[in-house]
Design a protein around this nucleic acid. Structure first.
Lengths: 215, 215, 215, 215
DNA sequence: GATGAATGAGAATTCATTCAT
DNA sequence: AATGAATGAATTCTCATTCAT
């Protein structure tokens, strides 16, 4: 809210700036992930965040807004991380591999978040149909940029539609996410190591299934 | 809607056995697709089906059961059609292409159904987490069979994990579905023809992105 | 709702037609009168009417609508009664006296109703500011007609503004209503008999109105 | 609003004692008038007064107390003004006319206040039923005194009940007030000039009261 | 089987009031 | 004194489900 009301490095730092809002969002990720968005009560989130029910409404317009805020908050972090990491890669091929790696790493590291982003967010009609657009397209945009760069420099074939491929890539990763979450939930072991998954998806997208593809 | 399907007091046209159940399921597909499962009222479905609210409960245990029944009903049809169509294809490569084609055709032919299958089914906690499994795995199984057959007969590389690939394939198709539905909803033209989409996805999976792959 | 779904005089009369709606309105008059509109809970009304809370919402859009419906329902009855009674009077002077009499009689006969009409209805901003108009003006219109008729036939002075006088008359009666209600509430005796009140108000208004003022 | 009424760090213009209380009451008149008492939030009043929400509770016990305080504060002023003005009039007839005049002038001068006094004060159950009494009866008492004086000195008929007539007078004026406020709110022109209204009401009451009715 | 009126548990949201700073 | 973030009790309204007809 008022992020600048204290002076850095001086004693009078307002304790835990943005604390409540942050705690609520963090709690929401876990509660929504656990029970699902529609089955979670706002008070569940409040309790998990250690605040009173009404407090949620000081920071969020309503339950939907809370869901959207969770999304925005997390996506901001993820997008920043993603861009910064990809900048370290030299060529589109490396970037694509890193993109896949980062996506799947994230899923493993924070399953609750993965669940909210991959499953719960699709619930709110309002979300999928009206809001999903912005940050989501930014994420897709990152993938698309890799593809167009690769086409330009000749690492990828020129006859593909980047808009279609970025979707296919996202869909594949998203579905693997759902699979992984299901395993975790049912205490089944993951079907393969993260490394294997990354390699397989990378190979799929770069070389395809064809036996003579990859020489 | 149904007030005239028989004549009062006369023995006549007893509406076809199973008529109501069918009409309710058909209505549910459209209502759930329109408003989303959680935002749909049971009475909305009843009204759309031209039956009274209570009638739903003569055919389905509860709202969740209705959703599950929609899924089972449609999946049965789809799986039967899918299997029968694939039997006509001679080799795994042709089957894969046909599989992609049939999936995407389905989306175009019946968008409401596609929407329910692709989006709404992820919703009900009960669903994604407990139910989705059966018929959905059967669908995935069809894809997996194609892959394993292809590996066996040498048309596909041996170093792929069919369980992972079938998911990636489904995820890619699913996400394209979502994209298509979004276009339809917002009256934007679809990004490309069905034929193009089939080819691109097929190429992606069979040949990958590599420029010199498929010679 | 469906007032015509039964045939009068035949056995199969649907028991107590409009029963619930009627009972809710009757209950609302008493509950609102007792606790005040804003301090009444919808469930109080439901309980008083002997129905479940949700049932209210089958008959009324919301709490405000219930208040407005109470008003409309009662005013319809009152206006019908008023007009029918006034038709029996031969001249404006007699009608004016009867109008005053009926207004004050009503207050004495049904204090809960009087309280809702005179006090509680002024609470709902929506009501006073947007709705009050219609039926209320019809009531005022009855008074105005008497005044204009009286002016025409010479029983009342011609230099008065009927729009102003009808308001003054209503205001005087309304305020007496409030006074009477306060007495009843506090178990004080009414300040005077109904007859006296009628005569005094009549004298006040008629003598003031008379062209050569009551000789 | 108030940020510049004193200079920081300098002893200077300590805002007038009672400043906050006054500002809150003034704000309350407007906010209550605008939205109605029950629909006004305490914070609305605070904001309008330019103070923090909690500050209200340094000056008033609770929301009801605020309403009562508004009433008392305004009525004190009005009663003082009223008495002082009436003292300038020589006879009951002149006083009655002046009373009417002052009442209606008040409405025109400060419509927000008039609205609160005429409409909102009937609201709070606590109010109409317990509190309204005191200052309101003092106001009525002023009217009654005029009437009894007039009866004593023969300017008014002896057969009237001053308790009834003072109510009728107040009610008439009150209702005209409501009418005026409605016009103001809907940007309709007032039905007549203030002078006309005063004369009409005066004629209504005085001619009706006159022993041989104003010849 | 079919109906649809009735139910009542459940949830989101509001807002008067408090109190640590 | 003043603040305004936080509280949590209270209330409206919704809707899956039941059941008498």
């Amino acid at each position: 809210m008022n992020e600048h009301s204290f002076r850095k490095g001086i004693v009078l730092v307002r304790p835990r700036e943005g604390d409540k809002r942050r705690r609520i969002i963090d709690a929401a990720v876990h509660v929504f992930s656990e029970r699902g968005f529609f089955n979670s009560r706002v008070n569940d989130v409040a309790e998990a965040a250690g605040v009173a029910g009404g407090t949620i409404y000081l920071y969020f317009k309503n339950k939907d807004d809370l869901l959207i805020s969770v999304f925005e908050d997390r996506m901001d972090t993820i997008l920043a991380m993603l861009k910064s990491e990809l900048r370290k890669e030299l060529n589109p091929s490396g970037q694509l591999k890193r993109f896949i790696e980062l996506h799947l790493e994230l899923v493993q590291r924070d399953q609750a978040l993965a669940d909210v982003l991959a499953v719960e967010l699709r619930q709110s009609a309002k979300f999928v149909r009206e809001y999903r657009a912005r940050k989501f397209y930014e994420y897709l945009g990152v993938a698309e940029d890799i593809l167009t760069d690769g086409i330009k420099d000749g690492s990828f074939r020129a006859d593909i539609d980047p808009k279609l491929y970025r979707r296919a890539l996202f869909g594949a990763l998203d579905e693997l996410t759902v699979m992984w979450l299901a395993c975790a939930r049912e205490d089944r072991p993951a079907p393969c190591s993260l490394n294997d998954a990354v390699n397989q998806v990378f190979n799929l997208f770069v070389s395809g299934l064809g036996p003579e593809a990859k020489l």
